[in-house]
């Protein structure tokens, strides 16, 4: 068997979804029994069967990618609840496995995927999509590309007439239907908080659920930007949003 074919076969097994109990499925790629599939490629040893050895990698894969999604989308997790969020991520990652060398980009296709698969956010479509957009904007703003900033000494009479204002590429502009920025900040705050008492933790958990349920629709315009290497959410007016959006899109009518 060629190296390429072996790697394709093993990767299919490694990336196959786990059972609900987080074990490797008994039915493998193509409907074949997984024990037979694993035994074809992997040697057993005196302690583990071929199936069990392959299962280590299958579990590692899913624990890694699900962990990364949970870290990147704490607000969406709060909206959907842990169980539904995990199920949604398994479905998303099965259809949209990573195409990037870095886990940072794992959620890059989540918004588009959810628009095609709204059943995963049924009843909370608008809220959930708002949250996904904000959480992805947060990632982009954190380490997105920055262009050099124009310094006053670089300006002269000639150059002013040629100026074209642009927004930094890492700046994200969002028109949202819910004030999800509050929820994200709360989710982040909660992650950094350790409660010594389980009772306090449970009370906080119930309060968080209530916070999601109580969230009322409210149109907001948001700039997700960074200053001194920290990401900030800033609410702006509709007019400000329109102007920044036009600048972001390179609208030349806004040139001086």
């Amino acid at each position: 068997m060629s190296l390429a074919n072996l790697q394709k076969a093993v990767a299919r097994a490694v990336m196959q979804p786990l059972t609900r109990n987080e074990h490797m499925r008994v039915v493998g790629p193509g409907g074949e029994r997984m024990r037979r599939y694993a035994a074809r490629y992997i040697k057993p040893n005196d302690r583990l069967t071929s199936f069990e050895r392959l299962e280590i990698y299958n579990r590692q894969y899913w624990f890694r990618v699900l962990g990364s999604m949970a870290e990147d989308f704490p607000g969406l997790r709060k909206i959907l609840g842990e169980r539904r969020f995990d199920d949604m991520c398994r479905a998303y990652l099965t259809e949209c496995p990573s195409r990037s060398f870095t886990l940072r980009n794992l959620g890059s296709r989540l918004e588009a995927w959810l628009r095609h698969n709204p059943q995963w956010v049924r009843g909370k479509e608008v809220l959930a999509l708002d949250m996904v957009r904000l959480e992805w904007a947060d990632i982009e703003a954190f380490d997105g590309e920055a262009e050099p900033v124009l310094r006053p000494e670089e300006l002269d009479a000639d150059s002013v007439s040629k100026l074209r204002l642009r927004v930094q590429p890492y700046v994200q502009l969002l028109e949202l239907h819910y004030p999800v920025d509050d929820l994200v900040l709360q989710a982040k705050d909660d992650e950094g908080t350790n409660f010594a008492s389980n009772a306090v933790g449970e009370l906080r958990r119930r309060m968080k659920v209530r916070a999601v349920v109580a969230l009322k629709p409210q149109k907001i315009f948001l700039v997700v930007h960074r200053l001194d290497f920290s990401v900030y959410f800033r609410r702006i007016e509709r007019e400000e949003y329109s102007m920044l959006k036009a600048l972001h899109g390179g609208d030349r009518s806004l040139a001086p």
Partner: peptide, 16 residues
Amino acid sequence: WGSVDGTYTHDLLPMP
């Protein structure tokens, strides 16, 4: 190895 045709496992998979 850890990627196949541009899809990444993000793991360090053993070589044959």
